[in-house]
Design a protein around this nucleic acid. Sequence first.
DNA 1: CTTCCACGGGAACACTGGGGTG
DNA 2: CACCCCAGTGTTCCCGTGGAAG
Length: 407
Amino acid sequence: MDNLFEDLDLVKRSGIFANREVLRPAYIPENLPHREEQIKDLAGILSPALRGETPSNILIYGKTGTGKTATVKYVSNELEAMGRKMGSKCSLVYINGEVFDTQYRVFAYLARIFNKRVPMIGWPTDMVYSEFKEGVDTEERCVIVILDEVDRLASKGDDALYNLSRINSELSNARVSMIGISNDLTFTDLLDQRVRSSLGQEEIIFPPYNAEQLRDILSERAEMAFNESVLEDSVIPLCAAFAAQEHGDARRALDLLRVSGEIAERMNSPKVREEHVRQASERIETNRIVEVVKTLPLQSKIVLSSIVLLSKERSKKRFSSGEVYNMYRRSCSFLGMEPLTQRRVTDLVSELDILGLINAVIVSRGRYGRTKEISLSVPESSVQPVLLEDYKLKPLANIKIRTQMTL
DNA sequence: CTTCCACGGGAACACTGGGGTG
DNA sequence: CACCCCAGTGTTCCCGTGGAAG
């Protein structure tokens, strides 16, 4: 009769949260503060869809957490609802370029939405493309394809975008237009001229939020998320300030607020205090590092581990690619693995750089050539244990660091 | 002006896991 | 069933290039 869960605080009605879900990134609020203009623009550009015309293609720019996706989804829902009311067939398809990051996958997904049976891999792409075309064209309608994180898709060749942009000339009933969402402002550079002009018929910019605007957003959500007066006055401004440093990332701010609440809850504190926010900020950062390192491919782990080993061994903190590559080769032979080429390793290093685990800058040392200076940009103590969790890397715990070390 | 090292673009290749066809 | 086709991914190979010390 004693249930295991009865004793756990988790089940008891939380004193802190009223509804934690509204702080999660997936939640789309009714009201998007400081995005009125973008909403209006977007709605204006899309409105022809309701009159049976083809809306212009749109390109949306803005850094992460500036409300791009939320805004688009919000407007989509409104548009679809209005379409139903007016009896015009209007459908929006949301595609995340992170998940569907190749032309094949995008068209296969689209074809499936329009009731075609297409395997997720195996066919020639043009076959999948024509299946999709046939599927959409079965009736008169307006289809708006939303490509979130298009830069992902575009970086692997712009064929998909090109095909999508000229599909209308091959359709007789349906009309297709697209919305590209990108957080990289320079990504059109790698597009074909024709695609660029077609996709960028209209452009909407989402500027980063400043601390003040973040405060508004947080306050509004906090009202729904938390019970009355559990937040100390300084909590929201502090969350906003932290996130404003991170180029005004609202997602970050909301995360911070939620985790602060969770920490307060777990500590049985009746209120969320400033110290909880600071702890939350730390925890989010270390969690991120652990998560990233854990999911690194094996070879990248070895490269990273080599850099860690170097920074433990030497007094200095920056290393040339040559040094890193040598250490990498030693690690490989220690593990009994074939090392990759230097060329490949420079790519892996760049990836680690983008992930923010290391810092790499190209320097020219004149007579002594050109290198990348590489340094760890996160504490080694938070990286090494995670690396050693990988059983394939276990032996590296005992690697003799100094070549000249005597036994 | 030369020289040096490795950066990073691009082509080519190997391999995988799924298709369709005879 | 055997066989070849296809997209996608990770890799190697080749090579032109940058830019300050000498």
